[in-house]
Write a protein that binds this DNA or RNA. Structure first.
Length: 889
RNA sequence: GGGCGGAUAGCUCAAGGGGAGAGCAGCGGCUUUACACGCCGUUGGUUGCAGGUUCGAAUCCUGUUCUGCCCACCA
């Protein structure tokens, strides 16, 4: 591209298409295990195939892209695997609703027919999130895109299931599980959520505690129980009391009659379940419909009577109530008890009600035969991996959450009564009922030899396949070059809300199947909330669409905003205004480039260069900035990295260096010096393009190619250029000191102008008495003229009526005749002196403290002595000036 | 009922034992030949509160208040 005349503003839309094409042509994203360099591998947290890009995705993927681009430029063999998750329940729902909208009941299609519809839907709209991701400018290796229902990944899931089963870690059992009566499927404990009250604090909902009496079979009175779910009394098989409760102790072993059903119910003593102080101290026990009661049933060998159908209606066991919905039945049972004179009142009560994460239906504890993973033995090594530091969380505080979950882990219910998902690799013999778990459908029953076997109709929890993601995407269970080269992965970037669902389960599966934890680092990032600290959600209507933001601004500005906001351990409060800040930064940098290109003419990288102290200063500052940005990136402090880079560009390059180049570039000057100035400008901008590329990939590519030095430096894409290293830049302490001194002088003059409200147009003279000082300052005459509007002059004798500046203990005078009157300067000086006295006092007091001298480290004492000396000298100079000024008055 | 964060300028956040910083907002100057999406200068803080440790505390310890979150089977 020709560098010619630069447009006055950056065109993000053109840049996006131009550079994403260029990257694709150059195979920038493409990973090749055969290439050299240490591996840096990342697997994307696969978004749901039903998903649309939201702020969380944008943040999550920008972070990964920053890391991936940084490491790629830094010589690593990088792979970033993208993909999507089949999201069993969510996807089945979406397609089901779509069919319903066309008047089709999905069940009429049959299993095969429905699944075909899902695949058709996926082919048509399922890739939306992928193309949305691309607009962020992320550099995933799209040739490796995976879907958790891909054939290869299905094979991995089968292997996962079969091996765990062989090892006795997967079992089938009748248990009380969480049942969603709306979707009619089992759920894991994690998929059950509890409502939050207005404050979002507690999760109790208003309900009632209904009391009713059971009459003893022998007619010797009644016992009153309290319940929040009266309808479950149809499944009661015991009444529990505390064994030490004097009221009921003697009743243990006796029975009561069920009022509607032909059933005698025993009184049992159970110290674990019963709190004598709560309710009536007697608890009805329904082992088939309550987790606590189930445990009581196990302890006392009680029958478990299921009163529900899968759809939440009562079954035949419920006798007169059969066919009623569970909530209708509740009222009917209460009415009936009342009618029989057994109701004993009702108290208001607050309780936790579990709802399905997906459907929102109130979850029912339900007796059912399902598949489970025995988690305890699997959790041990996964726990140890973090404890021993083989996998590290950033920020570290999240390890606590991981530990607490892993240490109290329960068995995982993995079967789902859904059609869409990984089918369970288990077959039941039609003849004898024997169950076969196998990689392929068995030819014949191992028990009776019959050939008719039926595959388990259920599918697996989506997370059962996600758990394999870090190695299934590389070809596991086969041994592949990818697996050798890229597993374990380097870092997992995700939000805290799926630490249990996903991170913990990947740790478990990864260690169990490969012997190694799946990632070295886990970076947990923040949630993006709205400006009122509310979670973004469709129902609240406060969702900000990342694509809208990109359209209004640019992907580069958007990404930079996210990174500037990305402080560890804090949520991000979204404020569109901040994208404006980032856009201004893009513009600022663009303008700096414009300035550089304006002066490109005559630049010759092979011609002689005569750099001044300012060129060497710029180089040194660049090296320091590179070091700071690298350090921040290496420790996942993205906000610091972005802020350091911005401060460097704005405060050092633009506000100082570019201004310092003007006297040289706009006037006649030594050609070798001019050449060096241009060289430094281009070099610095080139370093900035590379430094910022991970944050703003398209803009920096544009910048890189527009640099007049681009062709000369060999061309190529910045995406493939080397990330700058601090050691590439010479850092000379004397140079830094010299320029800082000049800057202090300029700032002192500007400060005076500000205080005096003197326009920069008003020329001032800067008088120096000391010949040595004058010689030194003389080297910066051009800078002082350009930046502070002062001309240097030697004086033999101090003129009357001068403003005084003290820079590094030296007195500089500015004659005020005809500019401001002496009284005004006296007033200013008095303020300055007051401050100076305060400073000196503060420092001297500390030095006067004998304890400080005695106990503080020697270097701190020395440091303070120097400070006191400097402050004291400055103060003296100021006082003398004041005295002289008073005389002059 | 357990556990984990957070509280610093008007706002959003830095500083993790040595005179509290940035961006935005505010105020006062600048139509300076890259940029008014700009430049220069500048106001603003008893670091939630109360104790303690230390020569020295925003920083470490104890308590406390507010605030956000996670886990848990109280009928």
């Amino acid at each position: 591209m020709s560098s010619g005349e630069l447009p006055s503003s950056y065109d993000p839309v053109a840049a996006a298409t131009r550079w994403s094409q260029a990257w694709a042509e150059a195979d920038v994203d493409r990973a090749d295990p055969a290439r050299p360099g240490p591996a840096f591998s990342v697997v994307i947290p696969p978004p749901n195939v039903t998903g649309r890009l939201h702020m969380g995705h944008a943040l999550n993927n920008t972070i990964q892209d920053v890391l991936v681009r940084y490491k790629r430029m830094d010589g690593f063999n990088v792979v970033w695997v993208p993909g999507t998750d089949h999201a069993g329940i969510a996807t089945q729902w979406v397609v089901r609703r779509q069919l319903e909208a066309q008047g089709i009941d999905y069940r009429t299609l049959g299993r095969e027919g429905f699944i075909e519809k899902v695949w058709a839907w996926k082919a048509e709209t399922g890739g939306a999130i992928v193309s949305q991701l691309k607009r962020l400018g992320v550099s995933c290796d799209w040739s490796r895109e995976r879907f958790t229902m891909d054939e290869a990944l299905q094979k991995a899931v089968v292997e996962h299931f079969v091996r765990l089963h062989e090892q006795g870690l997967i079992y089938r059992a009748e248990r009380l599980i969480n049942w969603d009566p709306m979707d009619q499927t089992a759920l894991s404990d994690l998929e059950v959520e509890y409502a939050k009250d207005a404050r979002g604090q507690t999760k109790l909902e208003k309900g009632e505690l209904f009391k009713f009496a059971y009459r003893f079979s022998d007619g010797s009175g009644e016992i009153v129980v309290a319940t929040t779910r009266p309808e479950t009394m149809l499944g009661d098989t015991a009444i529990a009391v505390h064994p030490d409760d004097e009221r009921y102790k003697a009743r243990i072993g006796q029975t009561v009659d069920h009022p509607f059903l032909d059933r005698k119910i025993p009184i049992v003593g159970d110290a674990i379940l019963v709190d004598p102080a709560f309710g009536t101290g007697a608890v009805k026990v329904t082992p088939a419909h309550d987790f606590n009661d189930f445990a009581v049933g196990e302890r006392h060998n009680l029958p478990k009577i299921n009163i529900l159908q899968p759809d939440g209606r009562l079954n035949d066991v419920a006798g007169p109530f059969a066919g009623l919905d569970r909530f209708e039945a509740r009222e009917a049972v209460k009415a009936k008890l009342d009618e029989l004179g057994l109701a004993r009142g009702c108290d208001e009560h607050f309780l936790a009600i579990g709802r399905s994460q997906r459907s929102g239906a109130i979850v029912e504890p339900y007796l059912s035969t399902q598949w489970f993973v025995r988690m305890k033995p699997l959790a041990g090594p996964a726990l140890a991996a973090v404890e021993l530091g083989a996998t590290k969380f950033h920020p570290k505080a999240w390890e606590n959450l991981y530990y607490s979950w892993m240490r109290n882990i329960q068995d995982w219910c993995i079967s789902r009564q859904l059609w869409w998902g990984h089918r369970i690799p288990a077959w039941t013999c039609d003849a004898c009922g024997k169950i076969h778990v196998a990689r392929q459908a068995p030819e014949a029953c191992e028990g009776c030899g019959a050939s008719a076997l039926t595959q388990d109709p259920d599918t697996l929890d989506t997370w059962f396949s996600s758990a394999l993601w870090p190695f299934s995407v590389f070809g596991w269970p086969d041994r592949t070059d990818d697996l050798d080269r890229y597993y374990p992965t380097s870092v997992l970037v995700t939000a805290f809300d799926i630490i249990f669902f996903w991170v913990a389960r990947m740790m478990v599966a990864g260690i169990h199947f490969t012997g190694r934890p799946p990632f070295a680092d886990v970076y947990i990032h923040a949630l993006v909330r709205d400006e009122n600290r509310q979670k973004m959600s469709k129902t609240k209507g406060n969702v900000v669409d990342p694509l809208d933001v990109i359209e209004r601004t640019s992907a580069d500005a958007f990404r930079f905003t996210l990174m500037l906001s990305c402080a560890q351990g804090r949520d991000i409060l979204w404020d569109e205004k901040r994208v404006g800040d980032a856009s201004r930064f893009v513009t600022k940098l663009w303008q700096a480039l414009r300035y550089a290109t304006m002066h490109a003419e005559g630049y010759d990288p092979s011609a002689p260069m005569a750099p001044s102290v300012y060129e060497r200063w710029m180089e040194a500052r660049t090296g320091a900035a590179v070091a700071r940005v690298r350090d921040a990136l290496d420790t996942y402090r993205f906000n610091d990295a972005a802020a350091e880079a911005r401060a460097f560009v704005w405060d050092e390059l633009c506000d100082w260096y570019i201004e310092l180049t003007k006297p040289t570039l706009y006037r006649e000057a030594d050609p070798a010096h001019k050449n060096a100035v241009k060289h430094t400008l281009f070099q610095t901008l080139g370093a900035i393009a590379r430094m910022l590329h991970p944050f703003m990939p398209m803009f920096t590519e544009e910048l890189w190619h527009r640099l007049p030095s681009h062709a000369a430096s060999g061309g190529g894409l910045v995406a493939l250029a080397a990330y700058p290293k601090a050691e590439d830049f010479a850092i000379d302490a004397a140079v830094l000191d010299e320029v800082t001194w000049m800057q202090d002088t300029v700032t002192a003059v500007r400060n005076l102008r500000g205080e005096m409200e003197l326009s920069p147009r008003v020329p001032l003279r800067l008088l120096v008495g000391d010949a040595l000082l004058l010689a030194r300052l003389g080297r910066h005459a051009g800078a002082l003229e350009a930046l502070a509007g002062v001309s240097l002059e030697a004086i033999a004798e101090r003129p009357v009526g001068c403003a005084t500046l003290v820079v590094r203990g030296a007195e500089l005078l500015i004659p005020l005749e005809g500019v401001v009157d002496i009284a005004e300067e006296l007033e200013r000086l008095t303020k300055v002196i007051a401050k100076s006295a305060e400073d000196l006092d503060f420092l001297a007091k500390r030095l006067d403290n004998p304890d400080f001298i005695a106990r503080a480290p020697a270097d701190k004492v020395e440091e303070l002595r120097d400070k006191v000396a400097a402050a004291s000298a400055r103060h003296e100079v100021l006082l003398r000036s004041q005295a002289r000024l008073r005389e002059a008055q």
